[in-house]
């Protein structure tokens, strides 16, 4: 006999999300302290980030959160086909985000701006801190994005096969919750790194 408890499963996901928020919380704390200590250097270093790409990625992620949310409604209404399309759109958004990030990081690494590089050694400590935190935070975020992408891919296959359906869709909901978390963290990273200059 299978034990099934959708509310329990969602509660578990929420608790896990608390954990994730505190994981990033440690980094946000370090960011706050460093920003306080080196506000001038942070100000200068932030100019090197491309706010345009950052904005595009923000829009892309917001869009992907919307499509995930819509896919849940679609499954609730019994339209698995539409849900698969919406989930696929989410994954496309994730891919666009990653491609943008690839060019963004690639450009910086190309001009020698990465932790441990020769150029980095010539910068002031505050600037080194900014770029280190930039790589650390966006890198960890990207890792979560990839994990979220894998989860949603599995979910999409299950929606397609009908294993997730109107009567049983807690896995989709949990995948969606996780995806919103990835989105939410970016919503904080974006202004802290790109906009506050």
């Amino acid at each position: 006999m299978e034990h099934r408890d959708d509310i329990g499963a969602k509660l578990g996901m929420w608790v896990f999300i608390f954990t994730e928020i505190l994981l990033f919380g440690g980094l946000f704390l370090v960011y706050a302290i460093m920003r306080n200590n080196y506000s001038k250097e942070f100000h200068e270093a932030a100019h090197h980030l491309n706010a345009f790409i950052g904005t595009i990625n923000t829009v892309v992620l917001l869009l992907s959160s919307a499509t995930v949310a819509m896919s849940i409604t679609a499954v609730q209404k019994g339209n698995n086909k539409l849900a698969v399309i919406l989930l696929f759109a989410t994954l496309v958004c994730a891919a666009v985000f990653m491609v943008n990030k690839y060019f963004e990081w690639g450009h910086k690494i190309h001009i020698g701006l990465y932790p441990g590089s020769d150029l980095m050694m010539t910068l002031s400590h505050g600037q080194v801190m900014f770029f280190s935190l930039y790589y650390f935070m966006t890198g960890l975020h990207m890792f979560h994005l990839v994990v979220g992408g894998i989860i949603l891919t599995i979910v999409m296959i299950k929606v397609n096969s009908g294993a997730i359906n109107t009567g049983k869709y807690v896995l989709l909901e949990n995948g969606g919750l996780y995806w919103h978390l990835v989105d939410l963290i970016w919503i904080f990273l974006f202004p802290l790194l790109y906009l506050i200059t």
Binding site: F18, L22, L23, P115, G116, H125, S132
Partner: peptide
């Protein structure tokens, strides 16, 4: 659930600092 992630991220920072000399 609420305290362990902080040490998790701190330990990752130690590893990053050892590898990349971040400071």
């Amino acid at each position: 659930v609420l305290a362990t992630p902080i040490v998790g991220i701190t330990l990752l920072m130690i590893i990053a600092e050892r590898w990349l000399r971040i400071g």
